[in-house]
């Protein structure tokens, strides 16, 4: 019996190896040269490198959907889209980016602040390729840095939270106190306290980006401690939203993307990132011969950030709350309102 298994294995391996041999001859072989192929057609090849998964209902998915929207708009035959996920480790991300670059991708989007280092190193070797990353500000000759002003949406959601809370306590389920999460939380706190000084904002951090169970438990503790409107960022937020959804009369305010699908009766409003506009802009710049070097800002003033109300709960939000949010939004757009950011 065991001998039979072994022979079977040997035969299978032979099949595999001969198959590999025939495969080698096929034209699909990837180019081994490090120089990208010249793309003469109108088609643009875009590669996306993600720290988590493209279905995380947060940061990564919002960009993926943005790219899908671009592909939809320009036509499927005009945009080639490739995605690599779960590349939180900078070494693996570097390999992926370099591989895409050598395969002749025109625009490589590394969707995370942690990729700045890797891009700075790879980009000079591929001067004809455009690279992009964010959140960040350090652009390079062929590197775009994009920078969503998460604090703006945070502020508006803070205004909304202050108007909506009945208990006078709002809670923030934070991931790790850094980067976008801090910007968002700072904006949120200012929005709440400038609207109603009496409302308490309680900020807590889980110390993780992806522990959805932990985020859910933190949301439950927030609610047990009296919070009735909650918010929070990063991909773990979905766990918190689901936990809030369990309790009637408690609300969640989303960021990154519209997350109302998870709890339709709970998510009041969302700060949504319109990545498709930023990507379209990069494609446009590239067509004009600008391969990078720009610090692209996503903000309410140019519509790349947007506040979306959940239609299903529209009647739950009083008119004066919506007016207050709209007023703050106009002040942000006109530059009248400055939101402070953490400084040492």
């Amino acid at each position: 019996m065991k001998r039979l298994v072994l022979y079977l294995l040997l035969i299978m391996s032979l099949v595999v190896f001969t198959a590999c041999g025939t495969q080698q001859a096929s034209p699909s072989k990837e180019p081994t040269k490090e120089t990208p192929k010249e793309t003469k057609s109108e088609k643009i090849k875009i590669a996306l490198v993600l720290p988590s998964t493209m279905d995380d209902m947060a940061w990564s998915q919002s960009m993926y959907e943005g790219l899908k929207a671009v592909q939809e708009k320009m036509g499927k035959d005009k945009v080639d889209l490739a995605v690599s996920e779960r590349l939180g480790n900078a070494v693996d991300a570097g390999a992926a980016i370099r591989q895409y670059a050598s395969q002749g991708y025109d625009l490589i989007i590394a969707h995370g602040a942690q990729y700045q280092n890797v891009l700075k190193e790879i980009a000079p070797d591929f001067p004809k390729t455009s690279f992009a990353y964010g959140t960040g500000f350090q652009a390079g000759p062929n590197i775009f840095a994009y920078d969503p002003q998460a604090q703006e949406g945070g502020y508006l959601l803070g205004v909304l939270a202050a108007m909506m809370t009945k208990s006078g306590v709002v809670g923030v389920v934070g991931p790790v106190e850094a980067g976008d999460a801090v910007k968002f939380n700072y904006g949120f706190q200012q929005g709440v306290t400038k609207t109603k000084a009496s409302v308490k904002v309680r900020v807590a951090y889980t110390g993780s980006f992806n522990d959805i169970v932990g985020a859910g438990e933190m949301a439950k503790v927030h609610m047990d401690a009296g919070a009735d409107v909650l918010t929070g960022s990063s991909q773990q937020a979905v766990g918190a939203i689901r936990a809030v959804g369990e309790r009637p009369g408690k609300y969640w305010l989303s960021t990154d993307m519209d997350q109302s699908k998870i709890a339709p009766n709970t998510v009041l409003a969302a700060q949504a990132y319109h990545w498709e506009k930023i990507v379209s802009k990069m494609i446009e710049l590239r067509k004009q011969g600008t391969l990078g070097g720009q610090h692209l800002i996503l903000s309410f003033s140019d519509g790349t950030l947007e506040l979306k109300y959940n239609d299903k709960l529209a009647d739950k939000i009083p008119k004066e709350a919506k007016d207050a949010v709209e007023k703050a939004k106009q002040q942000i757009i006109s530059g009248q309102l400055k939101i402070e950011l953490p400084k040492k």
Binding site: Q116, F137, D147, V176, A178, G179, K183, G207, K343
Partner: peptide
């Protein structure tokens, strides 16, 4: 946790603070 605290706190790149991006590195 100590590592994350150090690279977002005392050791963070001053440029990250100056530009308000606050990336932990």
């Amino acid at each position: 946790q100590i590592y994350l605290y150090l690279i977002r706190g005392p050791l963070i790149d001053p440029q990250e603070v100056a530009y308000g991006t606050g990336v932990p590195q």
